[in-house]
Lab assay of single mutants.
Amino acid sequence: HHGSGALAALHADGPHAGLPVTRSDARVLIFNDWEERKRSEPWLRLDMSDKAIFRRYPHLR
């Protein structure tokens, strides 16, 4: 199991509170979210491209 239990660094406060600090933090969040959702949506594709990251977390651009 590759990303399970990996912890992402999140901004503690300010405008980005609760959001990932780096792209690799964002990838951890996206992976964990996908892993949760694919139980009920097995067709869901995992997209951890930069484009997917920016779409979801525009502050990382």
Rank of each mutant, 00 (worst) to 15 (best):
D47I: 03
V28D: 03
S40F: 10
R23Y: 15
R23G: 04
E41L: 05
L29P: 00
P20D: 00
R61N: 08
R23N: 07
D33I: 12
H11V: 05
I53P: 00
G3I: 13
P20C: 04
L29M: 07
P20S: 01
G18H: 05
L7N: 09
P20R: 01
A6H: 12
A6T: 15
L7M: 11
D50M: 07
M48L: 14
G3D: 09
L60S: 00
R23L: 15
H16A: 04
D47R: 02
E35I: 15
Y57E: 00
A8R: 04
A8C: 09
H16R: 05
D47G: 02
P20W: 00
L44K: 04
A52V: 07
A12L: 12
P20K: 01
A52G: 14
A6D: 09
G5P: 14
P42R: 09
K38N: 07
K38S: 09
E36R: 11
R37G: 05
V21W: 03
A26I: 01
R23F: 10
A8I: 09
H11K: 03
H2S: 11
A17T: 08
D50A: 06
G14V: 15
R56L: 11
G18A: 04
V28M: 10
S40P: 02
T22G: 06
D47M: 03
R55P: 02
K38T: 08
D25R: 02
H16I: 10
E36A: 11
S4N: 10
G3T: 12
H16W: 14
R56A: 15
W34L: 01
F54G: 06
R37A: 06
R56G: 02
P42T: 04
S4V: 13
S49G: 04
L10F: 05
Y57A: 00
A26W: 14
L19I: 02
A12W: 07
E41A: 05
R45Q: 13
E35T: 13
S4T: 14
L10Y: 12
W43S: 10
M48I: 13
E35P: 00
V28Q: 08
K38I: 13
P42I: 04
A26F: 01
E36V: 10
S49D: 03
D25Q: 05
A12S: 11
L10H: 05
R23H: 07
R37I: 13
S40A: 10
P42S: 05
A17L: 08
S4H: 12
S24H: 14
G5T: 13
M48S: 03
S49I: 03
L19R: 15
D33N: 06
Y57F: 14
G5W: 13
A6Q: 11
D25E: 08
G3P: 11
A17C: 09
G18K: 05
K51C: 15
R45H: 09
Y57M: 00
H59G: 01
V21A: 14
E41Y: 07
Y57P: 13
I30D: 00
S24A: 14
W34S: 01
H2W: 12
A26T: 00
F31V: 04
G5M: 10
G18M: 09
A26Q: 00
S24D: 12
F31P: 00
P42M: 08
L19S: 02
A17W: 06
S4Y: 12
R56M: 09
M48F: 07
L19C: 09
H2T: 10
E41M: 06
I30S: 00
W34C: 01
R37D: 15
N32I: 12
L44C: 06
A8E: 04
G14I: 05
L60C: 00
S4G: 11
L10M: 06
T22E: 04
R23T: 11
R61W: 08
R39E: 11
D47Q: 02
G14F: 03
R23S: 07
K38G: 04
N32H: 11
H59N: 02
R61K: 11
H2Q: 10
F31G: 01
R45P: 12
G5S: 08
E36P: 01
P58R: 01
S40V: 10
S4I: 14
A26R: 15
P58N: 02
D13Y: 09
H1C: 14
V21E: 07
H59R: 00
P15N: 15
S4D: 13
D47S: 02
L60H: 00
H16Y: 15
A9V: 13
I30C: 03
T22L: 03
N32R: 13
R56D: 05
V28G: 05
R27A: 07
R55D: 14
P15G: 03
R39T: 10
R55A: 14
R55G: 10
R55V: 12
A9Y: 09
S49Y: 01
R55K: 13
A52D: 08
A17H: 06
R45W: 07
F54N: 12
D33K: 04
I53F: 01
K51A: 13
M48K: 01
S49K: 01
A9E: 10
R27Q: 07
H11W: 13
K51H: 09
L10I: 09
L19Y: 04
D25W: 03
L46Q: 01
E35K: 14
F31M: 07
R27K: 09
A8Y: 08
P42D: 04
R61T: 07
P42C: 08
P20T: 01
F31L: 07
W34V: 01
R45Y: 07
F54C: 08
R27H: 04
P15C: 07
D25M: 04
K38L: 07
S24M: 13
A17R: 11
A17K: 14
L7A: 10
V28P: 00
A9C: 15
L46M: 06
E36Q: 12
E41F: 08
G3M: 14
D13V: 08
R37C: 05
R27I: 06
K38W: 07
R56C: 07
H2N: 09
I53W: 01
N32Q: 13
A6W: 13
R61Q: 10
H59S: 02
